[in-house]
Design a protein around this nucleic acid. Structure first.
Lengths: 114, 114
DNA sequence: TATATTTGCAAGTAAATACTTGCATAATAT
DNA sequence: ATATTATGCAAGTATTTACTTGCAAATATA
């Protein structure tokens, strides 16, 4: 159980995405996270290990507890990768683009009225 | 070799990301894609099958050839999932945000000068 | 028609993945 | 001090993944 360990792979697993979701809201210790799942604590521990190894989660020891916190900077890799294909799925980006266009139009209009 | 077949899993594999990259630029037939890799045609064929199964690639038969085209709408699932954690990796979004802020400031200034 | 090309299907393999259970250890709480 | 809690580590298993090689079928080309 070793090998590739990149962000793309890390978020491929639904359990790991759920874990990310949990710790993104609030830092939690390992057992609290594990309790939310039906699978064993060990399994969750391993998922968290994977998440820390690729830098999406950080752990700080606090007494006997290990507090897991989200550190999702690396998700940039994902969004940047996706962004390059923007033209292939413009539809959903429309709202943002419309917003930008509107802002620029407003700016122009404001300038005109000046 | 069956099971989960979602976009997150599809893009987890670097070979598949490469394939996406190739067909996003230009639709290509299966063999042409396979030739770019050292691994066997069958392996590539399977990767492409996975990509079509989750809707990221479409195939049209043309004589004996199968032309693979990118259809990356589903990447939205990814970008939407990532977007919800935006606050966790603001840094890189900074440029866009700065841009938006600047636009709004310009707009305000323009209005003031009016 | 004989031959090339483009591909699918099937069977088989090696490695990785996603788990499990059992046991050990350190920190806290009683 | 003893029990409880939070965790790690190790070994083992089932399933999935990522491939391979070999063969068959359909289309195009000489």
């Amino acid at each position: 159980m070793e090998a590739r360990r990149d962000v793309f792979q890390a978020i491929a697993d639904p359990t790991r995405r759920q874990i990310i979701d949990m710790v993104a809201r609030e830092s939690l210790n390992l057992n609290t996270i594990a309790e939310q799942f039906t699978m064993s604590r060990q399994a969750i521990s391993l998922h968290i290990k994977i998440l820390t190894e690729c830098g999406l989660v950080t752990i700080r020891q606090e007494g006997r507890e290990r507090i897991c916190a989200a550190k999702l900077d690396k998700l940039n890799e994902i969004s940047e990768w996706v962004a390059q294909y923007r033209k292939h799925f413009e539809a959903k980006f429309d709202s943002l683009e419309r917003y930008l266009t509107k802002l620029q139009k407003d700016k122009k209009n404001a300038a005109k009225r000046k």
